[in-house]
Design a binder for these strands. Structure first.
Length: 880
RNA sequence: GCGAGAGUGGCGGAAUUGGCAGACGCACUGGACUUAGGAUCCAGCCCGCCCGGCGGAUAGGGGUUCAAGUCCCCUCUCUCGCACCA
């Protein structure tokens, strides 16, 4: 008997043991991370019986360590992935590495480490950090773009593109440092100087490869209208970037002799006012027109000057309009006027035809130019009810109006004249309708080592010849010399460079340029669907068809244009190759905000890292620290928080919780150390209340209805079901994690304020268990380690919370017993009355009138009208 | 300059469809517990006043409405994107 008693007491003893147990995040977290890894919890395969959900976060460049921006991005993604999984979806949630790129090459130059070693060490470290955050990736699908197993397929696609004319070679200019003898990226040019040696950067013209993205330009533009799951501002940015405009190409014959100048204009309605012609200074036509003339030298010098200006243009606010009269004329095709021709700095050579008809009265830039050179001005659009005098105008009239001085079109509204004049030009054979785009083809050549080699061979006899498919992959050689000088290491590597021409067998040279790293990120999401498929074409259609498109893509706004546009283009191209079945890769896009923090600086030591500040003083000199503006976290401003430190101090769960709680995902997040403390405190508070009840809940099943509840228990259960409803709406539908967390906090607060039931009150304890289990399950996607641990302690041995379905709320339980109706008099709140949820309007009106406070405001006045908003409010409008 | 978005307590932020402005958290204040508290639990916390009540508050001004943070017009400020694109 005694023995039996002891046995019965064992659960209690365990309970008491647990009660004294503190929240130890590091132990718990590492334990569950090990568990997930060992049991393969997050590995997925195609399952036609289940609905799929593809959640993707933009993969990182392996720079060395994850930063807080990654923590935020991947936490948001992980919560959605875990949530969808608990909703029953078959969730694909992969991770990999955008591992080609310049920093690896810089490390090689500066520290003598081979880019592949540097990259793979970084990957190893960052993978460990991501695992330590508890993200639910299927690590078996990890992809690293710098491996031949990945980029070989890109080389195959390149060959197919070449066949179809989707890739071509064109001369194009690059930034060139004459001292380092190397090509510089735009970000390596600082104020026109080389970042490394400060020599003046020159322009160098090279043969380069281009992807014909413009072949898909209309589909890319129209697709913007079919992406309702994308933020409007991203779509606007893409539309602007594509920059489609409708207009006319108009021919202006030369005044003396043969030839003509073609211009593109969207304003053919102003053609009768075109009085001079402008040509981009660097346009080849300029040199043709001045050939043999005294001006030739001057024109050449002007073109050189303008080319240099081009680099500085971005930084200057006002451009002086410069021009050079080329001593020749063309004719306005409609008026026959002689139009002087100028070379100028403000016309772009590569947009339209590089030539512009100038209408000084209706274009501000042309107006300024005409003023400077004293050129003829003719008004052709008259504002309603006014007349403009070209002699006294101080600026161009750019609004709408009625045509004048325009021959047969006088009196027509200018917008209508757009079509009429276009038709007229066509009938005269002097013009045609055309469309212009701002978007250019995508230059993908990089004169760099650490990128995917372009599978082409240059043969002195046969020209540019593609490598045969059977020779793929063209693997980057490892033994190269990194000096940072003399151009790309590949161009100096004879074993790589020298080859036989695939066409004639003669000696030839390999293409030494590598591809832009945006090419790798244009299809990695398709590779994730079949990461180990090693047969041509590297994409397994059945698998891709199951997973694609990406249901939710999450990443920074900085990729709003280039990456997303390139990925859309590449997917459409792969579709036309028959490799994928979708038109658009990303159905929904979430662009998360930046992580910001206040800056701190010492008058002596400049910007300080947070750990260099103690109690408002600089740790180096003790001077008072100046707290500056809140800025995006960056190393240069030193306002950074180290994720490793956070994990050590609070654990991954707290870091995750804070990232979600402090701001909605699309907004900037202001980092606050105290806010982190707050999240940690909430986690501790949740832990303690569960520990406090744990013992009493042994052997108690969660309340599941049947019996009537009253008082506090009824309220607690109602609150529980209301919380389930709110959290499901906020997390599953709106991605408002901050309000979902608030709701759970409220439920925890309610549990704290509910009087503690006695140990014998099994019904009450069942209600408490239902609440506690709801809290734990609802928190699971947000703080997965804590909740797995609590779930197990609550007796769910051998069940992984990550696979537990989300709780369902019972609308009848969540419904209020009574509703509070706000009573307003003339729109001001004067009282509240509690009534049954189905109370009729007339009864509510009667109760309101009877209310002491309300009647005070009505007394002696006439009730004009009563507005009743069902279940919410009654507004009594009175007069007198 | 053009385009888009935003502006709510000391702070981060709630308010989903026009219906109680300020949920939740931070900071602050007080209390309890305590050897101690930078732990924990409880409470207070927009502003003003002639405070058991009333008035004012969502950048500023005007409008629509029984009712406006929310819709409309004007002004200011900030953020982002584009910036000679003809």
């Amino acid at each position: 008997m005694r023995y039996r008693n002891m046995l019965e007491n064992i659960p209690t003893l365990i309970g008491e043991c647990l009660m004294s147990r503190k929240y130890m995040p590091l132990e718990i977290e590492e334990k569950w991370q090990r568990y997930w890894e060992e049991t393969g919890t997050f590995k997925v395969t195609e399952d036609p019986a289940k609905k799929k959900y593809y959640l993707l976060e933009m993969f990182p460049y392996p720079s060395g360590k994850i930063h807080i921006g990654h923590v935020r991005n991947y936490t948001i993604g992980d919560v959605v992935a875990r949530y969808k999984r608990m909703e029953g979806y078959n969730v694909l949630h992969p991770m990999g590495w955008d591992s080609f790129g310049m920093p690896a090459e810089n490390a090689a130059i500066e520290r003598g480490i081979h880019p592949s070693i540097w990259t793979n060490e970084n990957i190893a470290h960052m993978r460990m950090q991501l695992k330590r955050m508890g993200f639910s990736y299927d690590w078996d699908r990890e992809v690293s773009t710098c491996e031949p197993e990945y980029y070989r397929w890109e080389q195959l696609f390149f060959l197919w593109m070449f066949e179809k004319g989707l890739v071509y070679k064109k001369t194009s200019s690059v930034n060139w440092c004459p001292r380092c003898e190397t090509v510089l990226a735009n970000e390596q040019v600082e104020a026109g100087l080389c970042w490394r040696c400060s020599s003046e950067v020159k322009e160098k013209v090279l043969d380069q490869w281009f992807f014909r993205i413009t072949a898909y330009i209309d589909e890319l533009l129209e697709g913007c209208d079919r992406l309702p799951g994308w933020p409007e501002r991203v779509l606007t940015m893409q539309r602007n970037w594509i920059g489609k405009s409708f207009g006319c190409e108009v021919s202006f014959p030369m005044a003396d002799g043969p030839g003509e100048i073609k211009v593109f204009t969207t304003r053919q309605d102003t053609l009768f006012g075109a009085t001079f012609m402008l040509i981009a200074a660097e346009h080849p036509l300029v040199m043709e027109l001045v050939k043999g003339k005294a001006l030739e030298k001057e024109a050449l010098a002007f073109a050189e000057e303008v080319k240099k200006q081009d680099k500085l243009m971005r930084t200057s606010d006002y451009y002086e309009k410069q021009g050079l009269f080329l001593d020749c004329y063309c004719l306005n095709p409609l008026t026959g006027w002689k139009m002087p021709i100028f070379a100028t700095n403000f016309v772009l050579a590569d947009y339209g035809t590089g030539c512009v008809m100038a209408v000084p009265t209706h274009d501000q830039r042309d107006f300024e130019f005409a003023e400077k050179f004293n050129l003829r001005k003719v008004v052709v659009i008259s504002p309603p009810g006014k007349t403009l005098d070209p002699e006294t105008m101080t600026e161009a009239y750019v609004e709408e109006g009625i045509l004048i001085n325009s021959g047969p079109f006088d009196g027509m509204e200018n917008l209508k004249a757009l079509d009429a004049i276009a038709d007229y030009l066509i009938s005269l054979g002097k013009g045609k309708r055309t469309v212009q785009y701002r978007l250019r083809d995508w230059g993908i050549s990089r004169q760099r080592y650490w990128g995917a080699p372009i599978p082409m061979v240059n043969c002195p006899k046969c020209g540019t010849v593609p490598v045969p498919e059977s020779d793929l992959p063209i693997v980057l050689p490892r033994d190269v010399d990194f000096s940072g000088e003399g151009g790309s290491p590949l161009a100096r590597h004879p074993d790589f460079l020298n080859t036989a021409c695939p066409a004639c067998g003669g000696p030839a040279r390999r293409e030494s340029d590598t591809m832009d790293t945006f090419v790798e990120s244009s299809w990695y999401f398709e590779r994730y669907c079949c990461p180990h498929f090693d047969q041509k074409p590297g994409i397994k259609r059945e698998q891709v068809d199951y997973w694609m498109p990406v249901d939710q893509y999450i990443g920074g706004i900085e990729h709003a244009i280039l990456h997303l546009l390139y990925a859309r283009f590449y997917t459409k191209m792969l579709r036309d190759f028959g490799l994928v079945g979708v038109d658009e890769p990303f159905t929904n896009l979430l662009t998360q905000g930046m992580v910001c923090k206040e800056t701190t600086r010492c008058p002596e030591h400049g910007y300080l890292f947070p750990e260099e500040v103690t109690e408002g003083r600089c740790t180096h000199c003790g001077a008072g620290v100046i707290v500056g503006k809140t800025e995006k976290m960056s190393k240069s401003l030193k306002n950074v928080v180290d994720p490793d430190y956070l994990i050590r101090q609070y654990g991954a769960d707290t870091a995750r919780m804070f990232c979600l709680f402090a701001a909605p995902p699309e907004k900037d997040l202001e980092w606050s150390d105290q806010g982190v403390e707050g999240s940690f405190r909430f986690i501790g508070r949740t832990w303690r209340i569960v520990m406090d009840y744990l013992d009493d809940l042994q052997g108690i099943a969660p309340f599941s209805g049947g019996e009537e509840l009253e008082g506090d228990l009824r309220s607690l259960r109602r609150k529980t079901h209301q919380t389930i409803q709110k959290v499901r709406e906020d997390m599953g539908e709106r991605f408002h994690f901050n309000t979902a967390i608030s709701a759970i906090m409220e439920l925890v607060n309610t549990l704290y304020s509910t009087p503690r039931p006695s140990r014998e009150d099994r019904k009450a304890l069942a209600v408490v268990r239902e609440t506690i289990e709801a809290i734990v399950v609802l928190l699971a996607p947000i703080v997965p380690h804590l909740t797995e641990e609590l779930w197990q302690m609550l007796g769910h041995q051998g069940v992984c919370l990550a696979d537990t379905p989300l709780p369902v709320y019972d609308p009848a339980v969540a419904a209020r017993d009574e509703m509070t109706i706000v009573i307003q008099v003339n729109g001001k709140v004067r009282g509240r009355i509690a009534v049954a949820p189905d109370e009729r309007e007339d009864r509510i009106q009667a109760l309101a009138m009877a209310d002491e406070k309300v009647s005070r405001f009505i007394e002696g006045k006439t009730v004009i009208k009563q507005v009743y908003v069902p279940k919410k409010l009654l507004n009594i409008v009175v007069k007198g």
